[in-house]
Amino acid sequence: MKLYKVAEQFAAWLVAVIVLSLLLVPIVMIVLTSLTPESFPTIPDGDVTLYWYSEMLSNTELMQALVTSFLVATCAAILSGIVGTVAAIGFVRSEISYREELATLMLLPLMISPVITGLAIIQFSSQADLPSGYPTLIIGHSILTLPYVFLIVRSRLVTFDDDLREASRVLGANGLETSLNITLPVISPTVISAMVISFVVSFGEFTATQFLIAPDATTVPVIIYTMLRAGLSPEISALSTLLIAIMVLGALISGAVTRST
């Protein structure tokens, strides 16, 4: 019995270590290989250098892609933040038939493979004479991130106290004043957190994005993929480490905003 217990405990810990290693080792690999003094991405044994970071910073194409990614992610987060919040408010408040089915429709961009979404949007955009590059990228990313905002804001609204709205109405505010003065401020941390998530998702999206880019508007993940095709290099690791830093920062901001309520 005693031995059996020990074996059980050992197995449990072993699984935990394996799973956490699977999840975290790839990320650690990126960070470590970005510091190598070698010309190929290997774990540095003792000697570390920031050479690949300076290489990266002097690469104008990379820097341009960073700016593009930043612009696209910001605009997409704002767009999906607005559309997703408005839709979530509508869905929670209205009593339409097929409400649940229609809400599931809002989640379709999560279920349909991003390859198909990207293909459909670039086809549509060229047929509808939408300017390629930024407008197409931003609209495409706003669609890909819309389900996140919708889901997160909707679940916050479900726990939103309806009494607050009613209290505001009785205190003399009309529906619009109530939405602006009460609903929005109360749910705003959630909306901001959802928009940060959208930003991060957009910033890292590759699969749909590869269809939507234009020569003057290329995002960082697409650059990473293109470089990867040409062969591994510590410079890719450096660029990826920068992205990891931005994404972890996003996670921290989102966590801090949510905790503040």
């Binding site: 990320i27 650690v28 990126i30 999206e205 590759f206 690791s237 996003g250």
Partner: peptide, 18 residues
Amino acid sequence: VLPLWIAYIIRYLGIQLF
């Protein structure tokens, strides 16, 4: 949850590096 914040392409790259 942390890895969820990091782009797939970066995580796949990490596996390839490993």
